[in-house]
Amino acid sequence: MNYFVTLTLNGLASGAAYAALALSLVIIYQATRLVNFAQPALALLSVYTAYTVTQLTGSYWLGFAAALTAGLLVGAFVERVIIRPIARTSQLNAIIVTLGLLLVVQGGVGMVWGNEQHGFRYAFSYVGRFAPSDVFALVAVGVVALLLFALYRFTPLGLRMRAAAFHPEAARLSGVRVGLMLTAGWGIASLIGALAGMLAGPPFISPNVFDVVFVFGITAAVVGGLDNPFGAVIGGLLIGLGMSYVSGFLGPELATLAALVIVVAVLSVRPDGILSRPTARKV
């Protein structure tokens, strides 16, 4: 029983990072119908930025701020310079370009910082069951989700972003600069992705550190429904719990395959995720 409680608490803490990554995928999918496979690479770049800043200044929190800033800027840059010219030609090409970006950034990080592991510290002590760092992960993701909700729901920027995502033409006819909203969306999404990276990175970072995290993040997004930010958060926590139980009881090597089983099982029953609204086909 005690073991079960430990697994549950660990699962929630790691689920927070999956939720954040899922959230960053959903924000972009909502706005552009594109799964951004480069998201873990952007998070990687942010986390390595934090690593270097922390090395230079000795301050974890300066590094943390640098990671979020880097995420915001890189995300906006990628949308404006790389994705937009290609998204005009074809949806599949845009997806493939995010894959290309993933390869470039992952390899580029390896070229600059090396393929070997670097130690990367937690925000707070990680000792003990439900350690301060675990609490921080849950609180940070909770706060970000609430801020995001408030941004969407109560600010003019959020209203513009939602209009641009749901109905670009109506948004333009209301004077909204749709392109600018897409750039903003990518920036915000990548900032949240950077947060996910800061939570999931420790204790060691290497160019492939987010491969498995990304798998769980995308599982969370798919299970929750790619169209639904709430679903992403719920999905992240559920996947965190599920993976913690599978690793604890069956062995960590099977966690990813268990994620596959969960995805297939959930999607076979609800093809657009747990929280999806049934929608008619658009003609």
Partner: peptide, 22 residues
């Protein structure tokens, strides 16, 4: 536009506010 181009995911008031945002 033809068919109105209402953003069905937004509320009535949000649709109206959208028109004056600029």
């Amino acid at each position: 536009p033809e068919g109105g181009g209402v953003v069905v995911e937004l509320t009535v008031e949000e649709n109206l506010r959208l028109g004056a945002l600029w």
